[in-house]
């Protein structure tokens, strides 16, 4: 190997090691956040719903690390309890749209023809709605609540996965390994699940990872507007909303959940970026 080649290989090796460290770090942080959300009841220092008006609006102190809100509830406990709604609902939302969108896309790309046209026009229709307006409509029809907000977000975000999966499926279908598998007697379902899906899963996984942050912001945004989680449920968006009039005087009521959203979205976005770099180092 030439000297230039050797140097390049060494640099690439270092980059790969650095990537591995990043991947480990961010997935550890993400797992920590998810565990925290799962066991939020066990790790809350105080009762997130226990009101004590005598302690209302205390600044952060050793007893209440993030202070208390207008009803004297411990902010730290509420932020931890809120992670359950925010993180778990975001994760299940993203998992659902990724699975559903991918399944629809692979099916469309594989069969083509009429079913493809119909499903793709429906997806165009879904994409045509501005997210917030659609969420407002859903909330108006079904009422507020995290589930309804998630339904509204799912309806406008599955087409992204369907389109990605469809175009990759069309590309795969022309490859000779698919033709060879067909000649080996594979059924359509086998071709889709055994051969096409594993070969297109990479970019879809990356899209889903990067979508976690976006979806979390949107869910929190809808709750902030009063279309998602309803008070007194501890949820970051609605907590920020209820504290927004006190931003000047008691900033911790808004800043604590705000910081939580910021940190969580950052962790999942960085993880998504790292996974993307890891899966296709060419970019």
């Amino acid at each position: 190997m030439s000297r230039v080649g050797a140097k390049r290989a060494r640099v690439q090796g270092m980059k790969k090691d650095y990537l591995k460290i990043r991947l480990f770090l961010f997935s550890a942080l993400a797992v920590l956040l998810i565990l925290g959300a799962l066991f939020s009841e066990q790790i809350c220092p105080c009762d997130p719903y226990g009101q004590d008006l005598a302690k209302a609006l205390q600044a952060p102190n050793p007893g209440h690390l993030m202070g208390t809100d207008a009803y004297g509830r411990d902010m730290l406990s509420r932020v931890i309890a809120g992670s359950k709604v925010s993180i778990l609902s975001t994760l299940s939302l993203v998992a659902f749209i990724a699975v559903f969108g991918t399944a629809a896309g692979v099916f469309c790309g594989y069969v083509e023809g009429l079913p493809d046209s119909v499903l793709m026009r429906i997806s165009d229709l879904c994409l045509a709605f501005p997210g917030l307006v659609f969420a407002l409509a859903v909330a108006a029809i079904l009422g507020g609540g995290v589930l309804n907000a998630a339904i509204a977000l799912a309806a406008i975000s599955w087409p992204k996965y369907a389109r990605l999966a469809r175009s990759r499926t069309l590309e795969m279908k022309g490859r000779s390994f698919i033709e060879a598998a067909f000649l080996s007697g594979d059924t359509d379902l086998q071709l889709m699940t055994r051969h096409i899906l594993p070969n297109i899963a990479g970019p879809i996984l990356v899209t889903a990872m990067l979508d976690i942050g976006t979806m979390m912001m949107e869910l929190a945004g809808l709750s902030f507007l009063g279309l998602g989680a309803q008070p007194p449920t501890a949820e970051w968006g609605s907590m920020m909303s209820s504290g927004r009039s006190m931003l000047q005087t008691y900033p911790w009521v808004v800043l604590s959940p705000g910081l939580a959203v910021f940190a969580t979205v950052a962790v999942f976005n960085l993880l998504g970026d790292t996974v993307r770099d890891y899966l296709d180092p060419g970019q």
Partner: peptide, 29 residues
Amino acid sequence: MQMVFQDSKGSFDSRRTLGDGIGESLRNR
């Protein structure tokens, strides 16, 4: 009737072993 393709590498699924590809028709039977 069976076929052999021009692009030998492209005719095998890159995520599966050669043995898996060769045995596919037997598995389907």
